[in-house]
Design a protein around this nucleic acid. Structure first.
Lengths: 195, 195
DNA sequence: CGCGACGTTGATTTGCCTCAACGATTGTGG
DNA sequence: CCACAATCGTTGAGGCAAATCAACGTCGCG
């Protein structure tokens, strides 16, 4: 049960057996059925979750009731609203399970204790936030400077399994285009392939 | 010379006099003339800089030679490519002074030493990265779900002094529109005001 | 003064949206 | 187990926001 998460953090730090135990003892296993909304706009995010199995998405609901998907998270990813979690402030986002999902969760209290007893975890979480920042920066740049078709192609190349798991209109809301237009993009692409 | 930066970090942590001294002794003052490129794509970022006076921008150059401005930074802001700085990996960005700029700089070595001798600075930098993440997420969402005019209005409201300091085409490349279109936006807005 | 950098304006084109109608597939209650 | 609804994807017509291209002001600076 803890094998994957241990491998995952071991990319950044080396843990003794005791430290592993401290860590895994602080984790709480959570089963989240499909369509559960784990975090709502306005709530303070009370978890930082590592996904063992399943798929969730984080999205923002703008004033026109229009959804923008910020990210999908699948196996071996962490999911949370870090800003809300740390500053104890209301989140701007929703987090929703797209499949029955199994997670290992750190509560604010558990994370605090973890960082106190094994300070080298600071490094892990710092790196996670930095990677997150890099990837959002990257998406911003590409959203600005590429066409929807290019973004669609990059997305399916980078995350080949996600389009197989989630409805197309969620991908549209991730790419920042209408569902109909994703449809036309795909049509054009298959037309091109068959030439 | 150190007054502002001390006030700035004191928002997040409380420093003793000794700690202040450790901190300020590790800072290096740097004068950067206008148009200096402080970081180029492919280089490893060797600084984390606090701006005392002046203005810089961080931008990305895509494969078509098209520039996307990721952010401007003015007095009391930090500027760096954190991912490159920490992971010691080549940056994807350029950082350029738009005015004669005066900075206080932490080198990688100095930052390391700072975190070792005054670990509570971890908190400061974590918060800075998280705020940065939040602001990029916010921009991504708005780039996707708002029109250029709305984004322009939000920008001038949030950063009223920047349009007075930097050329309009940099703002265009921040908003993700053509310079010509910023011009039309402004024209429309003044036309509306004069009604 | 003259040149280069910057901003404006208008004509044309294009990427993508909106709306509306119509399949296809899934799932659920009778 | 079927019928019907709901969910999801496709297609097309028409429209708008913003890009592109080109030409022309304007200002500051060497």
């Amino acid at each position: 049960m803890f094998e994957n998460i241990i491998n995952s953090v071991s990319k950044y730090i080396t843990l003794t057996e005791e430290e592993e135990t401290v860590f895994t003892d602080l984790l709480e296993r959570r089963e989240v059925p499909k369509k559960t909304v784990m975090l709502r706009e306005g709530e303070v995010c009370q978890f930082e979750g590592y996904i063992i199995k399943g798929c969730v998405r984080i999205y923002y609901l703008n004033e026109n009731g229009f959804e923008v998907t910020l990210s999908f998270a699948i196996e071996d990813w962490w999911v949370s609203d870090i800003a809300s979690f740390h500053e104890r402030k209301p989140s701007a986002f929703f987090i929703e399970a797209l499949e029955d999902t199994e997670m290992l969760v750190l509560t604010p209290h558990a994370k605090e204790e973890l960082l106190l007893s094994v300070p080298k975890f600071e490094r892990v979480f710092r790196i996670l936030v930095q990677r997150n920042l890099s990837s959002v920066q990257d998406r911003l740049v590409k959203t600005i400077s590429k066409t929807a078709t290019e973004r669609y192609l990059e997305f399916v190349e980078r995350y080949p399994t996600i389009p197989l798991r989630v409805p197309q209109y969620f991908i549209a809301s991730y790419l920042g285009v209408s569902p109909e237009f994703v449809s036309t993009i795909r049509k054009r692409l298959t037309a091109k392939k068959e030439e």
